[in-house]
Simulated scan of single mutants.
Amino acid sequence: MAYVILKEQGLDVVFNLKNSWVALIQAYLVEAKWFHSGYKPTMEEYMTNALISVACPMVIVNAYLSAANPISEKEFEYLESNPDILHYASRIARLQNDLETSSYKLKRGDILKSIQCLMNETGAFEEAAHQHIKDLMRQLWNKVNAYRAADTILSETSIELILNLVRMAHCVYLYGDGHAVQEGTKNFALPLCFEPIPL
């Protein structure tokens, strides 16, 4: 990918691609340390790391470099700076994932997710924690949607990339863990792709 971009656009993005992947792997290592030590992070600690471990920043960097032609160095640098829209989108993706997968992931052996962190911190019951997370996601969606009308350095294409990533998270995790347990996503996606729409 970096070679094609260098050849076609004259930009060397190897360092940028490598950094996006290194940040993701470092976030995974933090979670691995928490798991193996039995550490229970605060909600803020968890979310700071989870905004990277959800992989949105890495995906957006890679998607932008794949989609943009020509690549705007200014826009690319802005995306790499983790602007608010990407921050909000990453939070939504992480929270949607956690809402539907936290109990499953805890059973298989994983770190506490946002719901459990919130319950530990506030003493809230699981149902109240779920509702709080849903309310938080609604607020974050309002902020993300505001970017569609905002004056920003990002092109419409880049904003759509980010919005589509969040939409995908909602789709994949709406009825459970559509990533690790593909049955739900398969049942949802196959009819969309292969069955005719009745008129």
Rank of each mutant, 00 (worst) to 15 (best):
Y78H: 09
A93D: 00
N62W: 01
F76V: 04
L29C: 15
E80P: 00
I71Q: 04
E80K: 01
Y88K: 03
A67F: 09
A89G: 09
V30N: 12
P41R: 03
H87C: 07
I85A: 11
Y88C: 10
S53H: 05
I92G: 00
M43I: 05
P70T: 14
Y64E: 12
N62S: 12
H87Q: 04
E44K: 08
C56H: 00
L79M: 04
N49K: 13
E77P: 01
V61M: 11
V59A: 09
I60R: 06
S72T: 02
Y64W: 12
A55M: 14
N62Y: 01
V59F: 11
L86C: 00
M47R: 10
S37R: 07
F35L: 12
E75A: 14
E45Q: 15
M43K: 07
C56K: 00
I71P: 00
P83D: 12
M43N: 03
A68D: 03
W34K: 06
N62D: 10
M47F: 09
V30M: 13
Y39D: 05
K33M: 07
E45Y: 08
A89T: 13
L29V: 15
I85N: 03
R91D: 03
N62T: 12
E45I: 15
M47S: 09
S72G: 10
Y78V: 02
L51C: 06
E31Q: 06
I85R: 05
I85W: 03
V30Y: 09
Y46S: 11
R91T: 02
P70Q: 14
S81F: 05
A50E: 01
E80F: 02
L86W: 02
H87N: 06
N49L: 05
L51Y: 06
H36C: 11
Y39M: 09
K40H: 14
S66I: 14
N82K: 15
Y39P: 03
I85M: 13
V54F: 11
Y88E: 12
W34G: 05
A68Q: 04
M43E: 13
M47Y: 12
R91N: 03
V59Y: 10
A68V: 05
L65A: 01
P57Y: 01
S81E: 01
L79C: 02
F35N: 05
V30E: 15
E31A: 04
V54P: 00
N82Q: 12
S81I: 08
V61S: 09
S72N: 13
L51A: 04
Y64F: 15
M58K: 03
A68R: 03
E73K: 13
E75Y: 04
A89L: 13
E73N: 04
I52E: 15
S90P: 07
L29Y: 14
F76M: 12
W34V: 13
T48P: 00
N82W: 14
P70Y: 14
K40Y: 11
I52P: 01
K74A: 01
A55W: 08
I71A: 06
Y39E: 07
T42H: 06
A32D: 15
N69V: 06
V59I: 13
F35T: 11
C56R: 02
F35K: 07
